[in-house]
Amino acid sequence: MPSTHEREITGPVDLCLPDGRLNPGAVGWTRRPLHRANLRGWSRAKRWEYWGIVTPRHIIGLVASSLDYAGVHGVYVLDRETGEETGKDAVVPFARGAVLPDRSGAGEVSVRGGGVAIGVRQRPSGSRVRALAPGVLDLDVEIPLPEGHESLGVVIPWSSRRFQYTVKDVGRPVRGRLSLPSGEHEIGEGAFAVLDHGRGKWPYRMTWNWAAASGPGLALQLGGKWTDGTGMTENALFVDGRLHKIGEELTWTYDRADWLRPWTITGERVEVEFRPFHERAARVELGVVGTETHQCFGRFSGHARTDEGAWIDFDGLTGWAEEARQRW
């Protein structure tokens, strides 16, 4: 069976035309980062790097972003044993000092301000991620890129002037250390990392769903709402690092009055149940700009179908599912 109606891009391409509009030749999906996000000017341009790290003891989230009018950076840690959350958020006017390269996996990411500093050194062999928020955390990890490991890159075309390029890289190995006020923790066996690299020009209002999960030899990347009606999706199954692109829009069912009730994510090639064990709620209000995110951590069960039509069963994949509502 064909894996998807969507076009696979196999060579380097610029995201934008010289006048700043979307390059039609950039619309498609990739197995490794091939897009150069040559965004021009302001006009609702958004750039971010999000790294999520899941270990047997902790869940860590790091965000470095430039939203034109502000840099919104943050660090977060959940202790899975105690349920304790710690974190630090910073808003830097006009994203002063933020360095966010135009290619995923190349160059250096650097943001600083408001008591938060995040740096990522990206190389062909992998990335080194450093984050420091005094009194909150000190993180130093290596995230290797295994040979043959694939990631999902997608361009979502709302219009010629509103579009988003995302790379979702799920199930990367990670090793290093996490220092918290409560003590030092080694990161290695049983841990994985997820990258969300985003570059684009967004409408003022948008809602999205995102789920990412990983386990031995398997990983899931699923999205919804924000891609509906564009002809593109950000859905994929990874088996031993190989991407199986899922081109259909999926149905997400969950209870907005009780985020910890089970979620379902379904389609012709996906039947997933997600059982949360913790909800992280985050809100940012900056006048006419605001965001509300409910990110639930938990375990996934069910099955998904490969490009060849085989159903792959999974039970106990760990990760998260979220709903984010943006005014930006």
Results as ranks from 00 to 15, higher is better:
residue 153 G to S: 13
residue 309 G to T: 10
residue 154 V to G: 07
residue 56 P to N: 13
residue 152 L to R: 02
residue 213 A to R: 02
residue 264 T to L: 05
residue 147 E to D: 12
residue 14 D to R: 12
residue 81 E to L: 12
residue 237 L to Q: 07
residue 174 V to H: 06
residue 48 W to V: 02
residue 149 H to F: 03
residue 233 T to S: 11
residue 155 V to G: 07
residue 257 A to S: 15
residue 42 W to E: 04
residue 140 D to E: 08
residue 246 I to L: 14
residue 11 G to F: 07
residue 55 T to Y: 13
residue 135 G to W: 13
residue 17 L to S: 12
residue 229 G to P: 03
residue 185 H to P: 07
residue 23 N to R: 07
residue 242 R to E: 10
residue 148 G to P: 04
residue 27 V to K: 09
residue 51 W to L: 03
residue 128 R to P: 00
residue 311 W to P: 01
residue 83 G to E: 08
residue 128 R to D: 01
residue 204 Y to T: 11
residue 252 W to A: 05
residue 316 G to C: 11
residue 187 I to W: 02
residue 239 V to C: 07
residue 187 I to Q: 05
residue 283 R to E: 15
residue 44 R to G: 00
residue 111 V to E: 04
residue 87 G to C: 12
residue 233 T to V: 15
residue 19 D to R: 14
residue 297 F to Y: 14
residue 125 S to P: 05
residue 99 V to M: 06
residue 193 A to R: 00
residue 293 T to V: 10
residue 181 P to R: 13
residue 146 P to D: 03
residue 62 L to Y: 06
residue 124 P to R: 06
residue 121 R to V: 02
residue 35 H to M: 08
residue 203 P to I: 05
residue 38 N to E: 06
residue 111 V to I: 12
residue 10 T to L: 02
residue 211 A to P: 05
residue 238 F to G: 07
residue 47 R to M: 10
residue 227 T to G: 12
residue 136 V to N: 10
residue 166 T to V: 08
residue 222 L to C: 02
residue 18 P to I: 08
residue 238 F to R: 11
residue 282 A to L: 15
residue 11 G to R: 13
residue 192 F to P: 11
residue 164 Q to M: 11
residue 239 V to Y: 02
residue 276 P to K: 06
residue 259 W to C: 12
residue 69 Y to P: 00
residue 129 V to Q: 00
residue 89 D to G: 12
residue 50 Y to K: 11
residue 106 A to P: 00
residue 105 G to W: 00
residue 35 H to G: 07
residue 157 P to M: 12
residue 258 D to F: 08
residue 255 D to F: 09
residue 27 V to H: 12
residue 208 W to F: 04
residue 293 T to W: 09
residue 203 P to Q: 04
residue 4 T to C: 07
residue 44 R to D: 00
residue 78 L to P: 02
residue 150 E to F: 00
residue 182 S to V: 11
residue 62 L to T: 06
residue 49 E to D: 13
residue 263 W to G: 08
residue 269 R to C: 13
residue 317 L to Y: 05
residue 121 R to G: 00
residue 292 E to S: 12
residue 171 G to N: 04
residue 226 W to R: 15
residue 172 R to C: 01
residue 75 V to F: 07
residue 37 A to P: 01
residue 17 L to E: 15
residue 134 P to V: 13
residue 104 S to G: 01
residue 45 A to E: 01
residue 98 A to F: 01
residue 223 G to F: 07
residue 160 S to D: 10
residue 118 I to R: 09
residue 235 N to M: 09
residue 169 D to H: 00
residue 227 T to W: 02
residue 127 S to V: 00
residue 319 G to L: 03
residue 260 L to H: 14
residue 149 H to R: 06
residue 268 E to A: 15
residue 309 G to F: 11
residue 123 R to H: 04
residue 321 A to S: 12
residue 224 G to R: 07
residue 244 H to A: 07
residue 112 R to W: 05
residue 142 E to V: 12
residue 32 R to F: 01
residue 101 P to A: 02
residue 132 L to E: 15
residue 114 G to M: 09
residue 119 G to R: 05
residue 269 R to P: 10
residue 249 E to S: 10
residue 207 T to N: 09
residue 90 A to P: 02
residue 66 S to Q: 09
residue 53 I to Y: 14
residue 253 T to L: 10
residue 163 F to C: 10
residue 181 P to G: 11
residue 287 G to F: 09
